[in-house]
Design a binder for these strands. Structure first.
Length: 1024
RNA sequence: GGGGUUGUAGCUUAGCUUGGUUGGAGCACCCGGCUGAUAACCGGGAGGUCACCGGUUCAAAUCCGGUCAGCCCCA
């Protein structure tokens, strides 16, 4: 009894159409809301979103990170966890926003901003932050990234900043947040210092000029110390020269002048120079020299040679020019020798009026400096160099190292704690833990936290005129100290708040800094929950279970999360962290707006569809670089979705014809069923392990292997079972196995490809329930039969070898052959051999012992050994060995006698070749050999034709959509061998096609087939 | 300069942790095909100095050392 229970589908329906339909289904049935909001009272698995800067557009790399986040959360949800903190997050502060505002207003300097007004400037910043928020939300919806966007944390909110203030006060009270005057990396355009991990993101290869400079020894007319530098502009500020006291130095003469240089550099610096004497660096210490440029007043301790271990032999002359205002090492050594800083450079990076280059940007003055040196006979030589140098990673300006007051978090004091906490984190891939990230922790530097800018979380430190400091840890603290709480904690409102000094009652003003925006995002674990002010949240949920972002966050967000959590709570911020590589363009190049190969997330989805995109991200390990590959995206999607749709279509059309509706999986004794269910459960076991270890790319591979076996072996070998007449138990088992496997494959795949799997799930189960509420499959070990899987692997190998042998001997697959002989090390279950026998298409199939293999064993001489014995008779001997029974004689007697000479087996090579009458293929790995008898006698030929006739009639039955038990009357118009074939195999053809009668006719009705060049006309008519 | 990582067929890759069998796969290329699911499919083939040089071992893609090249990080 037929039915229409299972809907027919269009197997070529595009992924994008399917996705559109499923988004509509999710929306109309409130699927996403239900899953996000339902508390199932299960164990929690917490996630933490890494906040993108909200004012940038989502690109394809974001698609990949969002896909992975979504996959992990779906998998954990289906595996029986409630997902905690399944929300978004937005990073709202910092230079990315300010630069956009500057561009909008046409500003280039801080002065322009301050003249314009910080309030108006920040108002624009606040309003522009969410320029692309709608695009982000649309992209999330399109890719199927399920997060509660209404609960997203936003770093510009007062609550978020208040939590940060709590943290900063705590650090201040613990003397971990301190003010210091140091040489810091500094951007003269942005007018602010940067932290070490910000500097790290801005290194570029660049060309520069370097100079070798002559410092005249005091009291001499022509004796010089030569120093090398890549920053000529710092020469006016020279105060010391530094040598390594353990190195060898030489005094050389070029005829006119004498020079001190590192001994190992003499030959490269001088062509013809006489070494006057050699000494250790320590012998140079104390030497005084004339000031290079007489513009700045220096102290009495300056202008001398001092020792320093940081001096190396690799570059320059072994004599280092020190300008303490512009280098950290220089700064330290100046302190050691009581040398005061002299700094002619203002905060915009321009010289002041103490040097001849007033108001000029220092980097632009290098040519003038070199000109001055030449004019004054102080330049030994100059040369261009290529080196890496730090640039502002936001605006692109070359950084200076510059003396500045700044607030620091003394991170260097907790390096051991950082490393100890890192030990508790699972890194994917693992080598990041002790490699890139571990090294970063080893060298952790004090965090230069404060920024001389406008749009950011204000540093909550107030100062009075007596130099007292107060850290404010909450809005309430402001009132407590005599201030009014502003509605908005940002500048300039917070700047207007005056407090009363608790120590001396003087008026206190806030220090004019905002903080590093990385502190914002690094505080997400607690500040997103308004801790400690939100009494509904405590820190038990820290560390969170899982975070992931791109590889650059190793020195960004992953680092700041780790540091802040260690500082505040003494422990790691996250348990599992996965780092993902970048998506490259089709040519393997990094993508950027400046290169013009930038691909937005929206464009990518429009081109390929969400599920194909998602699967593409799993075609390799997410932490390996991947190039966009249009072909691979399409192929992978078709392999998975096309094949599953086709299997479903087969199932649905047959089940409907039989009136089958799935109830439950009953135990099947059929070997094919048992094999498939074993494969399914093995795959479930492996896939769960893969997903637990964040190897979703390996999970996809395992699932794809199963789909292939399912379609090309199980279904192919099972088809006839679905065409048997009655829906008996045997047939039901087949339907049940097919259904059960299909629906479980969809569940395995659901976290990876959520749209397609929900679409197919509805076809199988109805629209009442989404697949994403289903449990992730668990393996049932009762179904796993490794021996049976191994046996089927052998059987598949036999099929493949049989095809290969036919292919090589030009025997078509449809041609029945007389016999096939198989040799194998392993015994194969005859029942399985019976299963695959239709594929082998042979009258007779049997296993044979080793000795019966139809191989011709021949004996050939080892010429290098035989020739010395037989000389001219060697070729005759080789012909003699072609005689029959030579191999038998050698085996029997252990020797061959020829012309009075006895030859033992070591004179021969034994060759085995298949007998010419057999097509042959073998696989050494499995030990299987297949021999196909090539002889096609007339009977086999006719049998082959009979199969062709049967096939044609079956196709015609299919076209008429006949039930499989329906009888027909068949009329055929044909002559010659094909007619003889029908006459000979009449009964077989009748039985196979349910033809009550087969008549030869001269009628022109029906369909004309071409069978081996012969026209065959067949007409079929249903009869009762 | 230091640290990490990568190098396998034309391209993309599995295998390396735990040494042992002809080194697997997809795509491209060549060849075949409607055997009553599937032709954007199915089937078969060819193609590999496992970057190079040494070492250890009965045996090395796999372990060790050096060199070369790419990428990332520190500076």
């Amino acid at each position: 009894m037929s039915s229409n229970f299972y809907q027919t589908i269009d197997v070529n329906k595009s992924s994008m159409d399917i996705e559109k339909e499923i988004r509509k289904y999710w929306k109309e049935n409130k699927i996403i809301e239900d899953i996000l909001n339902k508390d199932r009272n299960l164990k929690r698995y917490t996630f933490l979103e890494g906040p993108p800067t909200a004012n940038g557009r989502p690109h394809v790399g974001h698609l990949m990170t969002r896909t992975v986040k979504d996959t992990v959360m779906r998998y954990k949800y289906m595996s029986g966890y409630d997902i905690g903190r399944r929300t978004g997050g937005w990073d709202c502060h910092g230079l990315p926003v300010e630069l956009e505002a500057e561009k909008h207003f046409g500003f280039n300097t801080k002065k322009e901003i301050e003249d314009f007004g910080i309030e108006k400037f920040n108002e624009y910043c606040r309003n522009s932050v969410f320029t692309y928020i709608d695009e982000w939300n649309e992209v999330d919806s399109e890719i199927g990234y399920w997060i509660d966007e209404n609960k997203s944390y936003v770093t510009l909110r007062n609550d978020y900043m208040e939590s940060e203030w709590y943290a900063l006060k705590k650090l201040f009270d613990e003397n971990m947040l301190v003010k210091d005057y140091k040489i810091v990396p500094y951007c003269p355009r942005c007018g602010t210092s940067l932290s070490s991990h910000e500097v790290a993101q801005g290194y570029k290869n660049t060309d520069d000029i370097s100079v070798y400079v002559k410092f005249r020894v005091k009291g001499s007319m022509n004796r010089y110390l030569i120093a090398w530098t890549t920053t000529p502009w710092t020469l006016p500020s020279n105060e010391l020269l530094v040598v390594n006291k353990d190195f060898d130095y030489s005094l050389v003469s070029d005829g006119n002048n004498e020079y001190y240089v590192l001994s190992s550099t003499v030959q490269s610096l001088f062509k013809d120079a006489k070494v006057l004497k050699t000494m250790k660096g320590k012998d140079l210490v104390g030497t005084r020299y004339e000031q290079l440029m007489p513009f700045l007043h220096v102290g009495s301790n300056a202008l001398q040679v001092v020792p320093g271990d940081f001096v190396t032999a690799e570059d320059g002359t072994g004599i280092v020019h020190a300008a303490p205002a512009f280098g950290a090492d220089d700064f330290d050594i100046a302190k050691e020798y009581n040398v005061s800083l002299i700094n002619p450079v203002d905060s915009e990076g321009k010289f002041d009026n103490s040097v001849p280059w007033k108001d000029k940007f220092v980097m632009d003055v290098n040519p003038d400096i070199i000109g001055y040196l030449k004019e004054n006979n102080l330049l030994f030589k100059s040369q261009k160099i290529k080196h890496t140098y730090p640039f502002c990673y936001r605006c692109g300006t070359k950084l200076l190292y510059y003396p500045l007051d700044a607030w620091f978090i003394k991170v260097s004091t907790i390096r051991e704690l950082l490393k100890k906490n890192n030990d508790k984190v699972n890194w994917y891939p693992e080598y990041l833990k002790d490699g890139r990230f571990g090294n970063f922790l080893n060298d952790a530097k004090d965090w230069a936290l404060s920024r001389n800018r406008y749009w950011g979380t204000p540093l909550p430190i107030w100062k009075c005129s007596n130099g007292h400091y107060l850290a404010v840890g909450s809005r309430e603290d402001i009132e407590k100290h005599g201030g009014n709480i502003p509605d908005d904690l940002h500048r300039p409102f917070i700047d207007a708040v005056k407090l009363k000094c608790p120590e001396c009652s003087e008026t206190m003003e806030r220090e004019p800094y905002v903080i590093d925006t990385w502190f914002d995002s690094g505080s997400a674990s607690y500040a997103a929950m308004h801790y400690p002010f939100n009494k509904n949240f405590d820190t038990e949920g820290i560390p969170v279970d899982f975070i992931t972002e791109a590889i650059d966050q190793t020195r960004g967000w992953f680092y700041t999360l780790h540091v802040i959590s260690s500082l505040l709570f003494g422990r790691n911020a996250y348990k599992n962290v996965m780092s993902m590589s970048f998506i490259l363009d089709e040519n393997g190049q990094k993508m950027s707006k400046s290169k013009g190969n930038f691909v937005t997330a929206r464009d990518f989805i429009s081109m390929y569809g969400a599920d194909p995109a998602r699967l593409f991200f799993y075609t390799g390990a997410p932490w390996n670089s991947k190039s966009i590959d249009k072909k691979l995206i399409g192929d992978t999607a078709r392999k998975v979705f096309g094949t599953l749709s086709n299997v479903y279509s087969f199932f649905a059309s047959n089940a409907n014809l039989d009136g089958f509706v799935f109830q439950d999986l009953e135990p099947s004794s059929n070997l094919l069923d048992r094999w498939l269910l074993s494969r399914l459960n093995s795959t479930i076991e492996n896939t769960r392990k893969n997903m637990d270890e964040f190897d979703m790319h390996i999970a996809l591979r395992n699932i794809m292997d199963l789909i292939n076996d399912f379609s090309n072996y199980y279904l192919r070998l099972s088809r006839k079972r679905f065409w048997e007449g009655k829906l008996d138990d045997e047939k039901k088992r087949a339907y049940e196995t097919l259904y059960y496997t299909l629906i479980n494959i969809l569940k395995l795949l659901a976290p990876l490809a959520p749209f397609y799997t929900d679409y197919m799930y509805q076809k199988l189960s109805g629209p009442e329930k989404t697949i994403h509420s289903e449990k992730y499959p668990e393996p049932d070990n009762n179904y796993i039969d490794s021996d049976l899987e191994k046996e089927f692997k052998y059987a598949i190998s036999i099929m493949e070898l049989s095809r290969r042998a036919r292919q090589e001997s030009n025997i078509k697959g449809r041609q029945v052959v007389g016999n096939i002989m198989l040799y194998s090390d392993m015994e194969l279950n005859p029942a399985i051999l019976d299963i695959i026998s239709p594929e082998l298409n042979s009258m007779d199939i049997k296993f044979i012992p080793f000795g019966e293999r139809p191989v011709k064993t021949t004996v050939k001489p080892v010429f290098s050994k035989v020739a010395p014995v037989l000389r001219g008779d060697t070729n005759k001997f080789a012909e003699y060995l072609n005689s029959e029974n030579i191999y038998s004689e050698l085996k029997k007697t252990g020797k061959i006698t020829y012309k009075g000479n006895e030859f033992t087996p070591d004179f021969f090579e034994i060759h085995e070749d298949p007998s010419p009458e057999y097509a042959f293929a073998s696989d050494e790995k499995t030990g299987i050999s297949v021999f196909i008898n090539k002889n096609i006698d007339n009977n086999l030929l006719l049998a082959g034709y009979a199969r062709e006739i049967i096939r044609r009639i079956q196709i015609m039955r299919k076209d008429l959509n006949l039930e499989y038990s329906r009888n027909i009357k068949t009329e055929i118009n044909v002559s010659g061998d094909i007619r003889k074939s029908i006459e000979k195999f009449m009964d077989l053809i009748k039985n196979e096609t349910l033809s009550k009668s087969i008549e030869f006719s001269s009628s022109t009705d029906g369909k004309t087939w071409d069978i081996d060049g012969e026209n065959v006309q067949i007409s079929i008519t249903p009869v009762n």
